[in-house]
Design a protein around this nucleic acid. Structure first.
Lengths: 205, 205
DNA sequence: TAGATTGTTAATCGATTAACAATC
DNA sequence: TAGATTGTTAATCGATTAACAATC
């Protein structure tokens, strides 16, 4: 879904009014039916022969995914991963607003990354109480992650986006979206294996 | 799957011999049945009452996923995302060997990131021919990505791991694993929406 | 009219879930 | 024996795919 949106935004900026499933499917190298079903999910009605209005479709996808809400967030961990994420150009468009950036490392505190000053962890609690962000983005090491999560949760953060390599233990009312970077590698490795060993079925004796 | 492996490695280092599905499921906050099915997929036989041998299970998962092969790779783009990825501690364990790191930016060339010196793009073609890596990891901007992909493909790279925000156009024999960072955010936003609006069914009028 | 496209309904397939049997 | 655990089979559910109808 994000990919449709990304593409639609490009088209929108090019001034396109209408777009067809056929075209989107071709761009993304997927089957026509898949694209049509996805678009149908949003509930938007297109006009036959011409396709869907680009601007309407953008809005429809955003409401469907839930990107029409404002999502204030804080990010903990300003290492390489943190800075890469905090600079992602599309996030703002998706409603995600990274308000503050924290790090433990004295060398990083005070630095400005993508327009945001890195703050000391000491200030985390105070700012959480004050600004009450919806989302906490965790980009710290595996060891530190649970501690950070606890702190965020105890100050009212109910949604965590976890990029660390741990399964967090949190109260049941907290929702965690965990990102496993190695997941993509696993898929790729599997594809490589089947591609090179011919058509080996996935399950073997 | 990667998460099982990650956990199993921890257990292995703690010296544990056996582990049960029950325990793994609990750790990962998933249903027992799910874990059991996943483990069953690997084809490994466990002993009733005690569970599975940790070392055997690690090996079984690795062969099942395809992480028992060596996967030499080059990474193009040594920005924040590139350095974060190149420093990922688990990759080596998964068979991925990032041999060389390239960047266009003169300021980055020559720097050492996680033990690898950043090389100029000029040297890319030569090194591709010489070392013939299986995988090309693309961590460059959306604009540059297609060009990099073309270069990699024309020098024999058949598997691409694409972290840029574009759908690449490649010959059909090339396999692309695309990572959409915003994908996780979409899932999280959807969860937030349903959590806050009560039990709204996903499809509406 | 012909063709491109959306819309809808049915069929297939696979994954998830459940229930029970086996056994150390 | 009792209990924890794997193993297996069946049932359910949802997603994917296919086929066709509608229409601008």
């Amino acid at each position: 879904m994000p990919t449709y949106l990304h593409r639609l935004n490009e088209l929108h900026q090019e001034g396109r009014e209408y777009v067809s499933c056929t075209e989107l499917a071709e761009y993304m190298n997927i089957e026509l039916i898949v694209a049509r079903k996805d678009i149908a999910m949003t509930g938007l009605a297109g006009s036959r022969r011409r396709g869907y209005r680009v601007d309407e479709l953008i809005q429809a996808i955003r409401t469907y995914i839930g990107w029409d809400q404002e999502l204030p967030a804080v990010m903990v961990g300003a290492g390489a991963l943190g800075s890469a994420l905090s600079g992602h150009p599309d996030f703002a468009m998706y409603g995600l607003q990274i308000r503050y950036l924290f790090d433990h490392d004295p060398e990083k505190i005070g630095k400005v990354i993508h327009g945001r000053t890195v703050l000391s962890m000491d200030k985390l609690c105070g700012i959480l109480d004050e600004c009450q962000p919806k989302i906490g983005i965790i980009c710290v090491s595996a060891k530190a992650a649970q501690g950070v999560a606890d702190m965020l949760v105890s100050h009212g953060v109910r949604y965590l986006w976890n990029f660390s390599d741990v399964c967090l233990t949190v109260p049941e009312y907290v929702i965690v979206q965990r990102e496993v970077i190695a997941g993509g590698l696993a898929l790729l490795a599997a594809k490589i294996k089947t591609a090179e060993n011919g058509e080996t079925p996935a399950v073997e004796e």
